[in-house]
Design a binder for these strands. Structure first.
Lengths: 187, 187
DNA sequence: TTGACATATATCAGATTGATATATTTTCTA
DNA sequence: TAGAAAATATATCAATCTGATATATGTCAA
């Protein structure tokens, strides 16, 4: 799914500036399954405006850059639903430097692994809390997608809590980060 | 984490060609949390060879392109561990066109949503089965990361089974894909 | 024997990321 | 209360990565 379609999706929630769309990806309702930075969003909004799938209203602000509010047009809405229905959604993409690192836990410094896992446990705990807290009166699709997120984050959290010590036990370097295992074998 | 580091990681498992590295991302032990296509892998291997982090041995094959076997050097191994330990791993990236679509379930055709969910349930079932099957004698890091994957896929599977009907009930178009909800309100 | 799939490498246009620039206001903290 | 940090707001650019395509051959099933 390209960034233009994703932007249209965010705009279904209501008119927004590029900055606000970014926030929706970073911390908002879309943050668990979509992403995009400014350098992708701004050009995308430009093209969508050209194609009349959104309108752009410039709100002049004193002593701040003008705020450009983008709003979905009827055509834009149709286009979004058409794009989503065009073919079955492709596979999810999950990329985790954290798991990649743990894959090599046996070669990693013990302190590093401990810190990484503890930080991640806390991060997941936070995510679950955040998602549980955001009640309000969302669309029902949004509601169920949120429940999905809670389930997954909770599972990941629980797994790490359950296997924290297992991972730490794999590491070979209790604090002596710079002595390779080969040298230590002589001890 | 850039593709060069990821390639080094794959090569810890043993020497491999670019094609084989790709398979490790697509269906192998790294497929759940890393990715990369040919057009990223081949240039990356070129650079790694220049930097002497891997060696390249050309295996001449009759009536097939030469197979280039890449092997991790001592330097490469050090470099990998150093790169992984350099800083705490960043946030996981999860991108799901599937969830993005379900977010708008209320606007989507019923048949489409049903098919998409059923396909996904089957996909998850398969993934869990696959991961459970791949026993063998892997490194312990690899083993625990695999358990993580099983837990997560199982959770996602179960969620969809549990909420399949909820999502389908949200949709407004039992088979009449092209009649917008607004027009149907008059019925 | 035809079509699909696997082996194997490579390139290229286009999309995206991450870093950086600019400028002001708000909020926290020492 | 002064100064630092973070939030608001848009924009660009080099570097990287994706997806599509090209090239050849082998293998297996219908």
């Amino acid at each position: 799914m390209d960034i233009r379609t994703t932007c249209l999706g965010v705009l279904v929630m209501g008119p927004a500036s590029g900055y606000e769309i970014r926030k929706a990806f970073e911390a908002g309702p879309f943050s668990h399954f979509a992403e995009g930075g400014f350098s992708a969003i701004y050009p995308a909004l430009g093209k969508l405006t050209e194609e009349a799938l959104v309108t752009c209203t410039v709100e002049t602000q004193e002593k701040k850059p003008d705020k450009k509010i983008y709003e979905l047009t009827k055509d834009g809405r149709k286009h979004l639903i058409a794009a989503l229905s065009a073919k079955m959604p492709g596979e999810d993409k999950f990329k985790s430097d954290f798991l990649f690192t743990l894959f090599f836990a046996e070669e990693m410094p013990r302190d590093f692994v401990t810190e990484a896992i503890d930080a991640r446990i806390e991060w997941y705990r936070n995510k679950v809390e955040q998602l549980k807290a955001c009640e309000g009166n969302p669309s029902k699709g949004r509601h169920f997608v949120r429940l999905f997120g809670i389930d997954v984050y909770q599972t990941e959290h629980d797994f790490l809590v359950r296997h924290r010590q297992d991972f730490i036990n794999l590491t070979e370097n209790p604090g002596k980060n710079d002595i390779p295992a080969s040298a230590r074998a002589a001890e």
